[in-house]
Design a protein around this nucleic acid. Sequence first.
DNA 1: AGATGCATGTAAATAGTTACATGATTCA
DNA 2: TGAATCATGTAACTATTTACATGCATCT
Lengths: 176, 176
Amino acid sequence: MTPGVLGHLLLGLLSRSEQTGYELTRAFDTTLKNVWGASHSQIYPELAKLEGRGLIRKTTAGPRGSQRYAVTAEGLGELERWLAGTQPIESPRLEWMARVFFLGLLPHDRALAYLRAQGAFHRAKLAVYEGYAAGVPPAGARSWDRIALEAGMRFERAMIEWAAWAVDLLGEEPPS
Amino acid sequence: MTPGVLGHLLLGLLSRSEQTGYELTRAFDTTLKNVWGASHSQIYPELAKLEGRGLIRKTTAGPRGSQRYAVTAEGLGELERWLAGTQPIESPRLEWMARVFFLGLLPHDRALAYLRAQGAFHRAKLAVYEGYAAGVPPAGARSWDRIALEAGMRFERAMIEWAAWAVDLLGEEPPS
DNA sequence: AGATGCATGTAAATAGTTACATGATTCA
DNA sequence: TGAATCATGTAACTATTTACATGCATCT
């Protein structure tokens, strides 16, 4: 069987540089967390599977029993096949957005509080992204990290404005 | 154990009206699909669990062995508890966005094609949402479906603009 | 020496997908 | 009567989360 999304993302990270499971885990807990999170208990077994299929291989062993992996030629091929698939497959898990459908069940002020909390959450995320953007090579084209980051920033801004719009809309009415 | 997201969303749908598993399945394959999809093979067992916990109950039996469910008082309580949780928990699964990080591995024209496909995808979704919006009671406040829909529309517009921005950025450069 | 961070694993449970399986009703 | 749609379920597999478990290295 061909790897799933997690496997392909691991191949992608390893295509940039050799890394240990620990380093990969950190990537899934920071940068990639915003699009596809994963924990070490999923990553280590997945690395073993990828190695078993010859898509990655062990390279140097480090200090504390650490083990570095590199992507193989077959792994790179598999990764490119995956990237080339342009059919946009989406099954988002947007819990906070799903709740909005049913917020009418809450008293007016608690529903408003929910929207305000969402706004604050997205403002905080935007601030983090802007911090990243300041550190990344300035918008220089062909910088795909920067392009992905831009998507994140535009998403957060859209959600901040949406929350403000919704609070406005509800705030204008007298509470029930 | 308390229900998960799926269980709560089922409670939410049933809080609006009694429904059969089939009708609920359709909701998760249309409206809710954009935020939290689910298939019938997950929904029927979950309904059984919710009933076992006394959060929903069977009401009238219909024509083809169909079975209608209604939310109980306890179910409504559980739902409100869930809705009131304002901590924004997010673990999005944005596969198409995750791929962007590694698009540099593809030849220039295929990477561009990927971005154009994304743009087209989001334009199509926006068109669908605008169709919904035309059918929904006009922006009348306290209409939470409309507020959720607005989030979707703003999201799609942001992604359309992002894709155009990225295509521009890359198009300006000579292909490698 | 104790805390923190590096580093890797397994076990158990829940969640989610895909495939298999069945039968009733309605409409052309 | 054949196709489409309504309607529900189970089985097998894959993915994900949470908890348990261990040990080394560095820094104070």
